[in-house]
Computed example of a mutant assay.
Amino acid sequence: MNKRLWDISPLVAEDAPIFPGDEPYALRWTARLSPDCPVNLSAITMSPHVGAHADAPLHYADGVASAAEVDLQAYLGPCRVIHAIGCGPLIRIEDLQHAASAPLPERVLVRCCARADTVWNPDFTAYAPETVEWLAAHGVKLIGLDTPSVDPASSKSLASHQQLLRLNLRVLENLVLDEVPEGDYELIALPLKLAGACASPVRAVLREL
Protein backbone atom coordinates (compact mmCIF):
# COMPACT_ATOMS: atom_id res chain seq x y z
CA MET A 1 0.00 0.00 0.00
CA ASN A 2 1.14 3.56 -0.71
CA LYS A 3 2.10 5.47 2.41
CA ARG A 4 0.28 8.74 3.02
CA LEU A 5 2.10 11.96 2.16
CA TRP A 6 1.62 15.38 3.74
CA ASP A 7 2.74 18.24 1.52
CA ILE A 8 4.12 20.79 3.99
CA SER A 9 5.19 23.38 1.40
CA PRO A 10 3.25 26.61 0.78
CA LEU A 11 2.41 27.77 -2.72
CA VAL A 12 5.18 29.87 -4.25
CA ALA A 13 3.38 32.73 -6.00
CA GLU A 14 3.67 36.46 -6.62
CA ASP A 15 1.73 37.22 -3.43
CA ALA A 16 3.65 34.76 -1.20
CA PRO A 17 4.64 36.49 2.06
CA ILE A 18 8.29 37.51 2.19
CA PHE A 19 10.63 39.42 4.48
CA PRO A 20 10.59 43.14 3.54
CA GLY A 21 13.37 43.67 1.03
CA ASP A 22 13.44 40.09 -0.27
CA GLU A 23 12.98 39.50 -3.99
CA PRO A 24 9.39 38.29 -4.58
CA TYR A 25 8.53 35.43 -6.90
CA ALA A 26 7.97 36.49 -10.51
CA LEU A 27 7.45 34.41 -13.63
CA ARG A 28 7.69 35.47 -17.24
CA TRP A 29 7.28 33.54 -20.47
CA THR A 30 10.28 33.44 -22.78
CA ALA A 31 8.52 31.27 -25.37
CA ARG A 32 4.93 30.19 -26.00
CA LEU A 33 3.40 27.38 -27.98
CA SER A 34 2.75 28.47 -31.54
CA PRO A 35 3.10 27.13 -35.06
CA ASP A 36 6.75 28.20 -34.89
CA CYS A 37 7.49 27.03 -31.31
CA PRO A 38 6.90 23.51 -29.91
CA VAL A 39 7.02 24.44 -26.20
CA ASN A 40 6.03 26.86 -23.47
CA LEU A 41 9.17 28.11 -21.71
CA SER A 42 9.26 30.21 -18.55
CA ALA A 43 11.87 32.04 -16.48
CA ILE A 44 11.60 32.90 -12.79
CA THR A 45 13.22 35.35 -10.36
CA MET A 46 12.91 35.10 -6.57
CA SER A 47 14.77 35.10 -3.30
CA PRO A 48 15.67 31.55 -2.29
CA HIS A 49 13.88 32.32 1.00
CA VAL A 50 10.43 32.47 -0.65
CA GLY A 51 8.20 29.58 0.42
CA ALA A 52 9.51 26.49 2.21
CA HIS A 53 13.27 26.71 2.21
CA ALA A 54 16.51 25.48 3.73
CA ASP A 55 18.88 28.16 4.96
CA ALA A 56 22.51 27.38 4.17
CA PRO A 57 25.16 28.35 6.75
CA LEU A 58 26.26 30.99 4.22
CA HIS A 59 23.08 32.89 5.07
CA TYR A 60 24.43 33.85 8.49
CA ALA A 61 28.23 33.51 8.18
CA ASP A 62 30.98 33.99 5.62
CA GLY A 63 33.32 31.27 4.40
CA VAL A 64 30.91 28.41 5.16
CA ALA A 65 28.71 26.07 3.11
CA SER A 66 26.36 27.36 0.42
CA ALA A 67 23.13 25.62 -0.56
CA ALA A 68 25.07 23.49 -3.07
CA GLU A 69 27.53 22.34 -0.42
CA VAL A 70 25.39 21.22 2.51
CA ASP A 71 25.28 17.56 3.47
CA LEU A 72 21.91 16.18 2.35
CA GLN A 73 21.61 13.59 5.13
CA ALA A 74 19.90 16.01 7.52
CA TYR A 75 17.02 16.66 5.10
CA LEU A 76 15.91 13.06 4.71
CA GLY A 77 14.84 10.60 7.40
CA PRO A 78 12.83 10.09 10.60
CA CYS A 79 11.24 13.27 11.93
CA ARG A 80 9.01 14.29 14.85
CA VAL A 81 6.34 16.97 14.52
CA ILE A 82 5.72 18.70 17.84
CA HIS A 83 2.79 21.04 18.45
CA ALA A 84 3.47 24.27 20.32
CA ILE A 85 0.49 26.19 18.96
CA GLY A 86 0.04 29.59 20.60
CA CYS A 87 3.27 29.33 22.57
CA GLY A 88 4.01 33.04 22.16
CA PRO A 89 6.89 34.89 20.52
CA LEU A 90 9.50 32.19 21.25
CA ILE A 91 9.48 28.39 21.33
CA ARG A 92 10.76 27.52 24.80
CA ILE A 93 12.13 24.19 26.02
CA GLU A 94 9.02 23.65 28.12
CA ASP A 95 6.87 23.91 24.97
CA LEU A 96 8.55 20.78 23.55
CA GLN A 97 9.23 18.61 26.60
CA HIS A 98 5.87 16.84 26.37
CA ALA A 99 7.02 15.25 23.09
CA ALA A 100 10.47 14.24 24.30
CA SER A 101 9.57 11.39 26.66
CA ALA A 102 10.73 9.05 23.89
CA PRO A 103 14.15 9.75 22.33
CA LEU A 104 13.96 12.46 19.69
CA PRO A 105 14.82 11.60 16.09
CA GLU A 106 17.44 13.67 14.27
CA ARG A 107 14.79 15.95 12.77
CA VAL A 108 12.22 18.02 14.68
CA LEU A 109 9.58 20.30 13.16
CA VAL A 110 7.52 22.54 15.43
CA ARG A 111 4.01 23.65 14.59
CA CYS A 112 3.49 27.09 16.11
CA CYS A 113 0.46 28.28 14.13
CA ALA A 114 -3.15 27.14 14.10
CA ARG A 115 -3.00 28.20 10.44
CA ALA A 116 0.18 29.23 8.66
CA ASP A 117 0.21 32.91 7.68
CA THR A 118 -0.60 33.70 4.04
CA VAL A 119 0.37 37.38 4.37
CA TRP A 120 3.47 38.92 5.95
CA ASN A 121 3.18 38.95 9.73
CA PRO A 122 6.20 40.44 11.56
CA ASP A 123 5.02 39.03 14.89
CA PHE A 124 5.67 35.38 14.03
CA THR A 125 6.95 32.79 16.52
CA ALA A 126 10.68 31.96 16.47
CA TYR A 127 13.02 29.68 18.44
CA ALA A 128 14.59 30.69 21.74
CA PRO A 129 18.37 30.12 21.37
CA GLU A 130 18.44 27.86 24.42
CA THR A 131 15.80 25.64 22.78
CA VAL A 132 18.03 25.14 19.76
CA GLU A 133 20.85 24.12 22.11
CA TRP A 134 18.53 21.77 24.02
CA LEU A 135 17.44 20.04 20.82
CA ALA A 136 21.04 19.62 19.68
CA ALA A 137 21.89 18.09 23.06
CA HIS A 138 19.17 15.51 22.36
CA GLY A 139 20.83 14.50 19.09
CA VAL A 140 18.72 16.63 16.74
CA LYS A 141 20.47 17.57 13.46
CA LEU A 142 17.70 19.57 11.75
CA ILE A 143 15.00 21.84 13.13
CA GLY A 144 12.09 23.48 11.36
CA LEU A 145 8.95 25.49 11.92
CA ASP A 146 5.91 26.94 10.17
CA THR A 147 7.00 30.59 10.34
CA PRO A 148 9.51 32.60 8.28
CA SER A 149 12.54 32.37 10.56
CA VAL A 150 14.08 30.78 13.64
CA ASP A 151 14.82 34.32 14.83
CA PRO A 152 12.32 37.16 15.37
CA ALA A 153 11.86 39.57 12.47
CA SER A 154 13.34 42.42 14.51
CA SER A 155 16.47 40.52 15.58
CA LYS A 156 19.86 41.94 14.57
CA SER A 157 21.98 39.38 16.44
CA LEU A 158 20.23 36.30 14.95
CA ALA A 159 21.03 34.37 18.10
CA SER A 160 19.20 31.21 17.05
CA HIS A 161 20.82 31.21 13.60
CA GLN A 162 24.18 31.57 15.33
CA GLN A 163 23.31 28.55 17.46
CA LEU A 164 22.65 26.61 14.26
CA LEU A 165 26.12 27.58 13.05
CA ARG A 166 27.86 26.73 16.33
CA LEU A 167 26.08 23.39 16.69
CA ASN A 168 26.18 22.44 12.98
CA LEU A 169 22.40 22.13 12.66
CA ARG A 170 20.35 22.53 9.49
CA VAL A 171 17.03 24.38 9.35
CA LEU A 172 13.78 24.47 7.39
CA GLU A 173 11.56 27.57 7.50
CA ASN A 174 8.15 28.59 6.13
CA LEU A 175 6.63 25.12 6.36
CA VAL A 176 2.88 24.48 6.44
CA LEU A 177 1.96 22.07 9.24
CA ASP A 178 -1.74 22.96 9.50
CA GLU A 179 -3.01 19.43 8.82
CA VAL A 180 -0.18 17.42 10.38
CA PRO A 181 -0.92 15.60 13.65
CA GLU A 182 1.75 15.51 16.30
CA GLY A 183 3.91 12.43 15.88
CA ASP A 184 6.64 10.70 13.92
CA TYR A 185 7.10 10.72 10.13
CA GLU A 186 9.71 10.46 7.41
CA LEU A 187 10.87 13.89 6.23
CA ILE A 188 11.88 14.50 2.61
CA ALA A 189 12.98 18.11 1.95
CA LEU A 190 16.09 18.22 -0.21
CA PRO A 191 17.61 21.61 -1.12
CA LEU A 192 18.55 22.34 -4.72
CA LYS A 193 22.23 22.33 -5.71
CA LEU A 194 22.41 26.11 -6.16
CA ALA A 195 26.02 27.25 -6.49
CA GLY A 196 26.91 30.02 -4.06
CA ALA A 197 23.34 30.50 -2.80
CA CYS A 198 22.53 31.41 0.81
CA ALA A 199 19.43 29.18 0.82
CA SER A 200 17.37 26.91 -1.39
CA PRO A 201 13.67 26.32 -1.95
CA VAL A 202 12.51 22.83 -0.99
CA ARG A 203 9.40 20.80 -1.76
CA ALA A 204 9.00 19.51 1.77
CA VAL A 205 6.85 16.45 2.42
CA LEU A 206 6.21 14.13 5.33
CA ARG A 207 5.50 10.45 4.74
CA GLU A 208 3.88 8.13 7.24
CA LEU A 209 6.21 5.53 8.71
Rank of each mutant, 00 (worst) to 15 (best):
R32V: 04
H83A: 08
S42P: 06
I93D: 06
A100D: 08
V108F: 00
D55P: 00
G144P: 04
A199G: 03
V132H: 01
C37D: 11
R32Y: 04
P191S: 15
L190G: 01
H83I: 02
A52K: 07
D71S: 13
P57T: 04
R207C: 02
D22K: 06
R107N: 05
V39M: 04
P10S: 07
Y75N: 00
P103N: 07
G63K: 02
P201L: 10
E94K: 15
R170M: 09
S66I: 01
A102S: 10
S34V: 08
H138F: 00
Q162D: 05
A43H: 05
P35R: 14
E208M: 05
V205P: 01
A16F: 02
G196E: 09
H161W: 03
L190V: 03
A54R: 02
A189W: 03
H49T: 12
A52C: 06
K193N: 09
G88E: 10
D7I: 01
L164A: 07
D22E: 12
L58C: 00
C113Q: 15
P122L: 06
A159Q: 13
S34W: 00
G196A: 04
M46T: 13
H83V: 04
E186M: 09
A13S: 14
P24R: 12
P181S: 09
S154V: 05
V202T: 12
P129E: 05
A102T: 10
Q73M: 05
I18L: 01
L194Q: 04
D55F: 11
A102Y: 03
L11R: 12
V132S: 01
D62T: 14
S157W: 14
G196R: 07
E179I: 10
Y185N: 09
L135C: 02
R115V: 09
P48C: 13
R28D: 10
V50I: 15
A43M: 13
M1P: 13
E182D: 15
A128G: 08
A137G: 00
K3E: 12
A43Y: 00
W120R: 14
P48G: 06
H59K: 07
R203C: 04
D117P: 06
V108K: 00
L11D: 06
D62W: 15
I18M: 07
L33Q: 09
A16Y: 14
A56I: 02
E130C: 10
Q97R: 12
H98C: 10
L58A: 10
L172V: 01
C37S: 01
E133T: 12
E130A: 11
H98T: 02
P89W: 15
S34Y: 14
A114Q: 10
R111N: 03
S101T: 04
S9F: 12
A16Q: 14
T131D: 05
V202P: 08
V132Y: 03
Q97S: 15
V140S: 03
I188A: 03
L172I: 02
E69G: 10
K3N: 14
L109P: 01
P152G: 04
A195W: 07
P48Q: 12
I18V: 15
A137W: 07
H161S: 11
Y25V: 13
P103D: 12
D36V: 11
E179C: 04
A74D: 02
P48S: 13
P38E: 13
